[in-house]
């Protein structure tokens, strides 16, 4: 199994990004997703310590228009959440890939990473939409 000693980013069809570094994965939503949602006014993050199976509802993003679920891209346990989003949810629009991260998961099964898309595959996926 590949071990990601350098941070490496992958993507899901639900427009989440997952940056894998050793046994941790930082998760957020992509520019495409935040742009589709529009102005984000609230983010409900999971509790630290919560455990999720792949595809579980992990967080909720609320725009002016509607609430959208964010699914766990891979199985894992939440070890950290981005406290900035509580007061500044608009950070997700302003910096989806950097300051607007949602949480860090402790990866349960490293083999799951292989099912995610790399940058090139995700770009092609978005162009096909």
């Amino acid at each position: 199994m590949t071990r990601y000693t350098q941070p490496t980013t992958f993507y899901t069809k639900e427009h989440e990004w997952v940056t894998v570094h050793n046994d941790l994965a930082t998760v957020g939503i992509t520019h495409y997703a935040e742009n589709q949602l529009g102005d984000i006014v609230f983010v409900e993050l999971p509790d630290v310590g919560a455990e999720f199976a792949t595809g579980d509802d992990m967080a909720v993003v609320e725009s002016v228009k509607a609430a959208s679920d964010v699914y766990a891209p891979i199985a894992g346990k939440v070890v950290e959440v981005n406290a900035v989003l509580a007061d500044k949810p608009e950070t997700v629009n302003e910096s989806p890939r950097e300051k607007g991260w949602f949480c860090v998961l402790e990866i349960k099964d490293g083999a799951e990473i292989a099912s995610l898309m790399d940058e090139e595959a995700y770009k092609a996926f978005c162009e096909g939409l």
Partner: peptide, 12 residues
Amino acid sequence: PVQYPMGVKDEH
């Protein structure tokens, strides 16, 4: 039209 490129918040 549900929104224009300006976005719901700025349109409001």
